[in-house]
């Protein structure tokens, strides 16, 4: 065995028998307000290769969009068609990317993080060690949901940011022509893109709350993620069946497309407010469901 091996081989290193010096024991003051746990969660989420790769995939859509549109300009379609307006203002690359990714990619990204939140820790066994530290179960769920919400906002902002950067580089900025026909200046236009992005980020976070709940039911994070994606797709399908129109406004995804209402003059707040209330409702109900499920669950994993 070489000297280098000796230095790293644990068997070669005897355990130390120094006395613990930090007595007396009961002098460990409680920190009532601390963001350490949340920051640790965010480091876990954003430091993980898989999640970084996921964010990379999310960025591909605006890039592809911007490049393909420079190659061939699409014909105008119908509805809130941001795609047709891309060449007039680069900001529309961000909006088009959001409307493409909101059906699957962004919900999948949020679903992955939410599915992992409890089930991932249970799966590798770290959950029991967190609880033994101790971390109160309510605090655990609160921090996990805060981290999901932050991830959701960051992922959505990331798509917008890449879209805006690519769009401005290839098509330039300037006055923005609204869906309602009028025009606004570049500054207000950027502000509206940011508001639309935050709106969608909050919508995805409510899906994340559903994911958090499902994550307390299983020890298989992938299963929880798949369940979130299925619910998301199911919601879009139900939303497209006219016979179920009575149900539509209650579906978690129904108001997501309302983010386009930020680009009317004036902003059409009705749908957006309904969207935010729906998101808040889903978030509250499913966070409480997660709490009811998890607060006295036996942790055997």
């Amino acid at each position: 065995m070489s000297a280098a091996e000796l230095a790293t081989s644990p068997a070669a290193r005897p355990l130390r028998h120094r006395p613990l010096r930090h007595r007396p024991l009961r002098h460990r003051p409680l920190r009532h307000v601390s963001t350490r746990f949340l920051r640790s969660e965010l480091r876990l989420i954003f430091g993980r290769r898989r999640n970084q790769a996921g964010l990379g995939v999310l960025a591909v859509v605006p890039l592809i969009l911007a490049i393909t549109v420079t190659v061939s300009t699409p014909r105008p379609g119908h509805g809130p068609d941001f795609l047709a307006s891309i060449t007039s203002n680069g900001l529309f690359v961000a909006l088009s990317s959001l409307s493409i990714e909101l059906t699957l990619f962004l919900p999948l990204a949020v679903g992955t993080i939410a599915g992992d939140s409890i089930a991932g820790e249970a799966n590798i066994g770290t959950l029991r060690y967190l609880l033994a530290v101790p971390v109160h179960r309510t605090r655990l769920l609160a921090v996990k949901f805060a981290a999901i919400t932050i991830f959701s906002l960051v992922a959505t902002l990331w798509v917008s940011l890449v879209g805006v950067a690519a769009g401005l580089a290839l098509f330039g900025g300037g006055e923005m022509t609204m869906l309602s026909g009028g025009q606004i200046g570049m500054g207000p236009a950027v502000l509206r893109v940011v508001m639309a992005t935050v709106y969608l980020g909050l919508c995805f976070a409510s899906l994340g709350a559903i994911g958090l709940f499902i994550s307390t039911l299983t020890e298989q994070p992938i299963g929880a993620t798949i369940a979130v994606v299925i619910l998301n797709v199911m919601s879009f399908i139900l939303d497209s069946i006219p016979q179920l129109s009575w149900l539509h406004e209650w579906l978690p995804t129904h108001w997501w497309m309302a983010f386009g209402d930020f680009f009317r003059d004036p902003v059409a707040w009705d749908g957006l407010i309904r969207g935010l209330l729906t998101a808040a409702g889903y978030a509250l109900v499913f966070w409480l469901a997660a709490w009811a499920r998890f607060s006295d669950k036996d942790v055997t994993g």
Partner: peptide, 26 residues
């Protein structure tokens, strides 16, 4: 309890820091 459990993609040190960061008395 029932064997070690840590995040596989973190270093040993980062894993202990993670445990410490959730301890409100630390």
């Amino acid at each position: 309890v029932e064997g070690p459990a840590f995040h596989p993609y973190l270093t040993a040190r980062a894993n202990l820091q993670r445990l410490d960061s959730v301890d409100r008395h630390a």
